[in-house]
Simulated assay, not measured.
Amino acid sequence: MIYQGVLKKMLTENATEIQYYLDMDSDFLNMNQLLSKHFSIKFEGHQCLHCNLERKIYRTGFCKSCFFDTPSAGDWIMKPELSKAHLNIEDRDLTYEKQVQLKPHIVYLANSSNVKVGVTRKSQVPTRWIDQGAHEALEIVEAPNRYLAGITEVALKAFVADKTNWRKMLKNDIEEVNLITVREQLKQHIPDEVVPYFLDNSKEVHLNFPVLQYPEKPKSLQLEKTLSYQGKLVGIKGQYLIFEDDTVFNVRSNEGLVVSIEI
């Protein structure tokens, strides 16, 4: 059976074992059901996730024009501390920016390869942690807007990482750390205006990924270069598909590619 569609990040469901779904336009594929099975994936073209035109993808699933125009690709997405909707200042579209920025945001600690600090909308918990491949996470601040969460992240990343080592994450090379202890160590570095939003009694969340075999030496599949690939799926972690031959494919970083999948 052949499925064709535009790649978008896999949808997830936090169950006893995380469930992954790939939207292939006409159907949803439960990727967990493909574990231990061979299938092929083939590059067919490009389609911008914003304008839906057949254009070369520039970043995050957008063509170059849309990346620099659409409000959902503003600098404040990657750098929350640049948010200005709370000041009634527009970046690209103030209405959109208020809808996103003026919502509760969580500053969290996550452990996927090492302890990192991050920011996400409260509505994106635990999806954000799943997408990062974190096996455990802990909320430390619930701020009323994105800006306050952003300046907290900036303050704390002087003491803990703000990036995930994707190779260590996929190899399940995990540093065992007590996140509650780290939270208490970081409390003194929370900006004064954010201290009222510090979470003293939050609980660790543990996540279980569907992985049968971790890669020893993960090698990234560049589908636009190889054009097609066939392999046996042995795991899914973060937004990566893991294959038996140590090939890994990051679905999210390939958003906007039109692909066909034959099972």
Rank of each mutant, 00 (worst) to 15 (best):
F209V: 03
R121M: 12
Y3G: 00
I140F: 00
R167Y: 09
F159I: 07
P210L: 07
G231F: 02
R121K: 14
I2M: 10
N30R: 13
K171R: 13
L82T: 03
N30V: 13
D93E: 11
L233V: 00
Y21I: 04
E176Y: 12
N32V: 02
T16R: 15
L257K: 10
R252S: 11
I236Q: 05
M78I: 10
Y229E: 03
V115S: 06
L87C: 09
V259P: 02
G45Y: 05
R167F: 05
Y58C: 08
M31Y: 04
Q239P: 02
N52S: 14
I57D: 05
N14D: 13
D200N: 11
F249H: 05
P196H: 08
P80D: 05
K84G: 07
P191K: 01
E13K: 15
T70F: 04
V234I: 14
E175N: 14
K168R: 15
Q19Y: 00
K122I: 06
C51E: 07
K219G: 03
G150H: 04
N52L: 13
Q19R: 13
P71C: 07
E139T: 13
K171V: 01
Q239E: 11
I2L: 12
L148S: 06
Y108Q: 07
Q213V: 06
E44I: 12
E175C: 10
F209G: 05
L241M: 11
Q47F: 00
V107I: 14
I18N: 08
I2C: 04
L227C: 09
N201I: 01
Y214D: 10
K237P: 00
K157A: 05
E17I: 13
N30F: 08
Y229T: 09
G61N: 08
E97A: 06
W166Y: 14
L233K: 04
T226M: 08
K103F: 03
N52A: 12
H46W: 07
Y229G: 07
I263Y: 13
G238D: 03
M169H: 11
Q188G: 01
N114W: 13
F243Q: 02
N201T: 03
H46Y: 15
A137V: 02
L29F: 02
Q132E: 08
Y147E: 02
K225W: 09
D200M: 08
E175W: 05
D173E: 12
H206Y: 15
N178H: 09
L82C: 04
N114D: 15
P144C: 06
E255W: 03
I77E: 07
V211P: 01
I236E: 02
I57M: 01
A73N: 11
D75K: 15
V258R: 11
I41N: 03
M1S: 13
L179C: 00
M169C: 07
M31I: 15
K187S: 08
Y20C: 09
D27Y: 14
C63S: 09
L207S: 02
K84A: 15
L22C: 06
Q124A: 15
I2D: 13
L94Y: 07
Q101L: 06
R128C: 04
K171W: 04
S228T: 14
E17N: 14
